[in-house]
Each structure stands twice: as structure tokens, then as C-alpha cells.
Simulated assay, not measured.
Amino acid sequence: MNDTAASSDAVLELISFEIAEQEFCIDIRTVREIRGWTPATPMPQTPDYVSGVINLRGAVIPVLDLRNRLGLGRTDPSSRHVTVVVQHEDRIVGLLVDGVQETFQVEASLFKPPPAMGSTATDRFVDAILPMEGRMLSRLVVGALLPAEQRHAA
């Protein structure tokens, strides 16, 4: 039996960030890098939460306004904002956030299921709540945040 695999199931490493004075976290394994904010080039016919695209060392990637994606208003980006570059399966995107707070480890058993609020969007985006030290962090589902890919019939 692999002891490393057993212990990694019990402890998760997360990165937390702030959006609209709320705290969110995602699994650190999805994060490729954290970049200072740079203006994105707008693209026509994209969802309103897509700020545009940026050049990441030769790769053109979309940047999502996470505040807008979560229904918390639009971000008026400035130099204090941060782009968290994440990878989900074979897709790489930037998530525009107000600021990155910390990386930390936590036992998976401390997560609580989010309460049913009658909003399918919230149910999709948040899969767990982490109450810790007087704070409540919502864990985001990275794959659910990404724009739906166009599927072509075979």
C-alpha cells in the first residue's frame, strides 16, 4: 500500500483569494502560476465574464473576470489585481481576482457541504465550504467556471 496516496487523500493543499470581499479557494494542483494583472485584449462574441485574451509565453489564453462569473459584479481591474493561471484537463485560463491571500493545507474532513440555496449556478461553482478561524471560504470547482466548449458532431 502506498502511504503517500493515503495521506494525500486526507490533506488538501489550497490557495485562497479574495473577490468582492469574499474568500474563495481552489486546489493548488490546478494552479500553473500567479501573474500580476495585465490588460486583456477583448474578443468579440464571448460571454460577458470573459475579459479577453492574453499572451502567456506564446500561448493565447482567455482571462475570466471571476467576480463577474460568480455574479458579484464586474471587476474594474487595476495594478492591485492578480491573474491566477489555472489548468483544467487540457484547458488553460486566467482567473482575474482581487488578490491572492495564502496557500495552506487542510484536512478534507473539515469541509462542509454548501447549503441548498435554490441557485443552480452556485451549486455548480461551489462544492464545499471551509469554516476556519472566524472565516468562511468557498471552494470553487475550476472546471465549472470555464466557458462551455463548442462540441462538434462526429
Results as ranks from 00 to 15, higher is better:
106 V>H: 07
79 S>H: 08
103 T>I: 02
148 A>Q: 15
51 S>P: 01
82 V>H: 05
55 N>T: 09
32 R>I: 08
26 I>H: 03
37 W>N: 07
12 L>Q: 06
54 I>G: 10
77 P>T: 11
86 V>M: 06
12 L>Y: 08
104 F>V: 00
104 F>P: 03
16 S>V: 01
95 L>S: 06
6 A>P: 00
47 P>T: 04
34 I>M: 11
115 P>T: 04
109 S>G: 10
103 T>F: 02
151 R>Q: 12
124 R>V: 00
24 F>C: 01
141 V>I: 10
43 M>Y: 09
122 T>S: 05
69 R>N: 10
82 V>E: 12
42 P>T: 11
34 I>W: 02
134 G>H: 06
117 M>N: 15
40 A>T: 10
117 M>H: 13
151 R>M: 12
82 V>Q: 13
57 R>G: 01
130 L>M: 12
97 V>C: 06
13 E>S: 09
96 L>K: 09
108 A>Y: 08
96 L>V: 03
92 I>S: 10
37 W>Q: 07
133 E>C: 01
52 G>D: 12
94 G>V: 04
53 V>R: 03
109 S>W: 06
54 I>A: 07
31 V>D: 08
120 T>W: 09
50 V>D: 10
111 F>T: 00
94 G>T: 03
92 I>E: 14
97 V>F: 14
94 G>R: 05
120 T>K: 08
145 L>P: 07
146 L>E: 12
85 V>E: 11
75 T>A: 13
144 A>T: 00
66 L>F: 06
38 T>V: 06
128 A>L: 05
111 F>D: 02
120 T>S: 15
65 D>E: 05
21 E>N: 12
48 D>I: 02
67 R>A: 08
31 V>W: 05
134 G>E: 11
100 V>F: 04
125 F>T: 02
86 V>C: 09
44 P>D: 10
72 L>I: 03
129 I>A: 14
49 Y>D: 15
10 A>G: 02
45 Q>K: 12
105 Q>R: 12
25 C>L: 05
60 V>M: 11
109 S>A: 14
96 L>M: 12
69 R>Q: 08
100 V>H: 04
20 A>V: 00
118 G>I: 00
57 R>Y: 14
31 V>G: 11
37 W>T: 05
33 E>V: 04
97 V>G: 08
78 S>K: 12
105 Q>Y: 03
20 A>P: 04
53 V>I: 15
13 E>C: 03
20 A>K: 04
139 R>F: 01
72 L>Y: 15
7 S>P: 02
133 E>Q: 14
115 P>N: 06
83 T>N: 15
5 A>M: 11
116 A>P: 05
36 G>N: 13
151 R>H: 11
37 W>I: 01
63 V>L: 07
42 P>Y: 13
126 V>M: 06
71 G>R: 03
32 R>F: 14
9 D>P: 00
115 P>S: 12
103 T>D: 08
47 P>G: 05
32 R>P: 01
147 P>V: 02
123 D>Y: 09
47 P>S: 11
97 V>S: 10
10 A>I: 01
100 V>T: 04
68 N>T: 00
106 V>Y: 02
132 M>P: 00
70 L>F: 09
90 D>V: 04
